[in-house]
Design a binder for these strands. Sequence first.
DNA 1: GCCACTAACATACGTGGCGTATGTCAATCG
DNA 2: CGATTGACATACGCCACGTATGTTAGTGGC
Lengths: 198, 198
Amino acid sequence: MAHKPRKEMIAETRAKLVSAARQAFGTVGYAEASMDDFTAAAGLTRGALYHHFGDKKGLLEAVIAEIDAEMNERLCAVSAKAPNRWQGFVDESVTYIEMALEPEIQRIMLRDGPAVLGDPSQWPNANACISSMTRNLTQLKEEGRVGDIDPEAAARLVSGASLYAAQWIANAENPAATSKKAVKAFKTLLNGLLVEKG
Amino acid sequence: MAHKPRKEMIAETRAKLVSAARQAFGTVGYAEASMDDFTAAAGLTRGALYHHFGDKKGLLEAVIAEIDAEMNERLCAVSAKAPNRWQGFVDESVTYIEMALEPEIQRIMLRDGPAVLGDPSQWPNANACISSMTRNLTQLKEEGRVGDIDPEAAARLVSGASLYAAQWIANAENPAATSKKAVKAFKTLLNGLLVEKG
DNA sequence: GCCACTAACATACGTGGCGTATGTCAATCG
DNA sequence: CGATTGACATACGCCACGTATGTTAGTGGC
């Protein structure tokens, strides 16, 4: 029988490695994840990993790129179905918080990622979320809905507040109650951006 | 001559270890810092370290507690000299950003700390900053200056935005210009908390 | 259609770092 | 003044990463 084409096999191998690593990083964390263990879980050895990704950090980068793409997709879906642009922005921000409640995202994107790869805003292939939020704010500014602020700066502040708040919520004794308080305060803060309060 | 009293020697040893570790963690980072290296730099060995701090994480906790205390002190000094409480809150928040521009704080408090010890809001001995900011907001709320929001939630959102923004600024191509944009957007956001715009 | 070549892995090895178990010496206390 | 405890140093084992070196299976040139 015909073997699968080369390219396809390779892509499959890479996907298996990324998936296994993502699982390991998301649960036990980057530092505790043994490359021998999770490559074996993928039916491979460390040799494959070093061949494709260079080192452990390279694999983490690939995992992060994948997660960022998924997050961006979810955010776009949310803002697309909003009745107006400002509401879309607010929904998107709240979705940001909700996503950051997930343990995998907390662990990989918010804790291990920054520690291993440095400041997230400098990650080459993981700022899709920020840039789409920035585009949103740029148009809101052109429409006169929000005041004279730098869209990217506002987007980063908002995302920073969201991500931090999410960690707080997720690890609180009572996540549901904490979430209510945080979202309320969050929406109040966002109103500061509006030209007239809505 | 009389040797120094026992307690004093011990405190000195602990201080030397914390200082050496702080230096190492702040420059090369927690994971890359070799315990053999920085204990030797302090004129000691790993034996002393394990005796006093249990393990590498324990030492990081001590370093973090020290830095947090310093940060809190600086914040209190800033808000103490403000003409009114709201201004004190704003000044404190901006100071938060400025502190987070320092490489040592970025590395230890914002990246390695969360990765190794987990969510910062759960750190037992490192939330002095947040609690003093929360107290400030509680009183502002009682005075009717800010609206009906949960003070701690607001404090965490504000600090999250500050810390995130600071990393972005510090690693930007043009930190000065980026800082201007961020601070302006930041103050705009804060205005959302006010009952009537100032 | 065969042969050189290269890419995709596996295997083997060295190194370094962490944690622990053990030893030693000095200070304290009855 | 002797026994005990606490503050370190020393020695050892283990694990994990990275690298160097195979080995096998595709791929292109003729």
